[in-house]
């Protein structure tokens, strides 16, 4: 279903339908995360990917145009790049341990340590939260700062310009009167 949605997105010209379909794509990948037991990630994907980003894309559509422009250059080179990258990635997965295998690096490196230590050191049942907020507190502080910076950047870029234009309009109006 993910693949079918992706193909539909590529084939379509109407941007409105594409925006809605990318929301569907996010929702499907959220389901995939639930199947993989990554419920925290699924939460975020469902809310951000399917909810907020769809609304933002629609908002952007209202500001620009509603139909995709036909590209003029040939699709051969991008197709070649995608195929080569995809083949490399697939070749890379051949060396990966099987999903859920007990001797995968992800299970043997630091995670048993965290799983063992967090119940009596942190006392919080959700180990993800314990790692995120306590063991990796600096990282999460950095992430919060990144979100903060991104928000400030968007505000400066979009609403700052808008406000200045409004001021100019007002000045013009007052000058005219």
């Amino acid at each position: 279903m993910l693949v079918a949605t992706a193909i539909a997105i590529v084939r379509m010209q109407r941007l409105f339908a594409i925006a809605m379909l990318s929301g569907v794509f996010s929702l499907l990948s959220a389901l995939l995360f639930v199947v993989l037991d990554a419920v925290d990630v699924a939460f975020t994907e469902a809310a951000v990917g399917a909810g907020i980003s769809t609304v933002l894309v629609l908002g952007t559509l209202a500001l620009t145009s509603r139909v995709a422009k036909h590209s003029t250059h040939s699709p051969a080179i991008p197709l070649l790049v995608v195929l080569v990258t995809g083949a490399t990635l697939m070749y890379g997965t051949l060396d990966m341990p099987n999903f859920g295998s007990p001797d995968a690096p992800a299970q043997t490196h630091v995670s048993p340590d965290y799983l063992e230590r967090s119940p009596h050191e942190i006392g919080v049942p959700n180990v993800v939260t314990a790692i995120l907020a306590s063991y990796r507190g600096y990282d999460t502080l950095g992430e919060t700062a990144v979100v903060f910076t991104a928000g400030i950047g968007v505000l400066l870029l979009i609403s700052g310009l808008h406000r200045r234009r409004e001021d100019e309009d007002e000045e013009e109006e007052s000058g005219e009167s």
Partner: peptide
Amino acid sequence: QHYGILIVELGVGITVTGVMVAVYYAF
């Protein structure tokens, strides 16, 4: 640890709410 995690997560939540709503307002 429990209190710390609660407070810190509250901070994260407030920032994320603010940024998301602010970006939506801006658009």
